[in-house]
């Protein structure tokens, strides 16, 4: 039951995340040597906005992976919420469209959770099913044609900024702190670590395992919907293929951020840094005009190297 004492303070958090933070610092230093335009405020704001969609997905994914689960459906849920936002925002009102889009995310997430917790379907299979199902719904809803969004206010959510910080990045950072608070200060958040490292032990000690599992998938669904909000408002279009393959980007961010795929170990701060590392890598490769074919090599190598180093440092401890 050691993991029940996992709510370390900020300093402890820094210590645990030392490897990831070091990697981030190193990447920033290298990047600033490779391009004199890297360390400029507009570019850093670009990076922060560019990572917001995958960053938000990865926050929800962290909850699921902490329980030793996986959520493959987040890209499809994003796509579903995107077409719902697009379908309702011009016809009805922005708040109603947002409520419906986020609601759809929570609904599909809840279905995932019910399947995993109560029907005993392995998370990989359950969410693989909803990956296909939710994507199918988006195609049926739109007939395969993108739905343009003309509402100016909605466009502002994805493209405006407050005090120079893009709104999508603010959404990401606020979500990050809310998630961190939930994981650190609530019984629910702390039990998730226990549930992930030893489900039976958690159950025996009175953790409502099934309900908590439903909750983590619903949370993941919610954040997929929120990422869909950023997506559709940034691009002012609801395309049914939105978010294809994003589940893998989100998983990569979580893993690079040091969260264990076996559950019980990790944090949303790590995930955030993992998201930044992947985002900065893409940014610096683009700034240097690196061929898109070669960019894929860098990304692949980064993921494997990060996990290799993390694995070693975990074992060393």
């Amino acid at each position: 039951m050691r993991s029940f004492s996992f709510n370390a303070g900020v300093l402890g958090e820094l210590h645990k995340r030392a490897g990831v933070i070091l990697a981030l610092v190193l990447l920033v230093v290298v990047a600033s040597f490779l391009s004199d335009r890297f360390l400029t405020v507009p570019n850093l704001m670009n990076v922060l906005r560019q990572v917001s969609i995958v960053g938000i997905l990865a926050l929800g994914m962290t909850f699921v992976i902490l329980t030793a689960g996986i959520d493959l459906s987040v890209g499809s849920i994003l796509g579903l919420s995107v077409v719902i936002f697009a379908g309702f925002v011009d016809q009805t009102s922005v708040p109603l469209a947002i409520a419906l889009g986020l609601g759809a995310g929570v609904l599909v997430g809840t279905v995932n959770g019910l399947g995993v917790a109560y029907a005993g379907i392995p998370p990989f299979i359950m969410t693989l099913g909803t990956l296909s199902f939710a994507r199918g719904l988006s195609f049926i809803y739109t007939g395969g044609t993108p739905v343009p969004i003309l509402d100016e206010g909605f466009f502002f959510i994805g493209n405006g900024s407050l005090l120079g910080v893009p709104i999508p990045s603010i959404i990401l950072i606020v979500s990050l702190f809310v998630c961190a608070a939930v994981l650190t200060f609530t019984p629910f958040g702390r039990s998730i670590y226990g549930l992930g490292s030893n489900e039976d032990a958690a159950r025996l000690s009175g953790v409502p395992v099934n309900r908590y599992k439903v909750a983590v998938y619903a949370i993941s669904g919610f954040f997929a919907g929120l990422a869909g909000l950023v997506y559709s408002s940034q691009l002012s279009i609801g395309t049914p293929i939105a978010g294809q393959g994003y589940e893998l980007d989100a998983i990569a961010a979580v893993v690079v951020g040091g969260t264990s795929l076996f559950g019980g170990k990790g944090s949303v701060f790590g995930t955030f840094i993992g998201t930044l590392i992947i985002g900065i890598l893409a940014n610096i490769l683009n700034l240097n005009g690196v061929d898109p074919f070669v960019q894929q090599l860098f990304k692949g190598a980064l993921i494997v190297t990060a996990v290799f180093i993390m694995g070693r440092s975990m074992r060393a401890r």
């Binding site: 391009s35 335009r37 400029t40 507009p42 570019n43 670009n46 560019q50 969609i53 997506y231 940034q234 691009l235 279009i237 395309t239 293929i241 939105a242 893409a282 940014n283 683009n286 700034l287 240097n288 005009g289 061929d291 898109p292 960019q295």
Partner: peptide, 24 residues
């Protein structure tokens, strides 16, 4: 030709690519 990026036929990937090209 300054740079080439993979837009994958759709809108979303083209935005960060173009942002980075404009910066560079």
């Amino acid at each position: 030709v300054l740079a080439v990026g993979d837009g994958q036929w759709i809108r979303e990937p083209a935005v960060p690519i173009m942002e980075d090209f404009l910066t560079a």
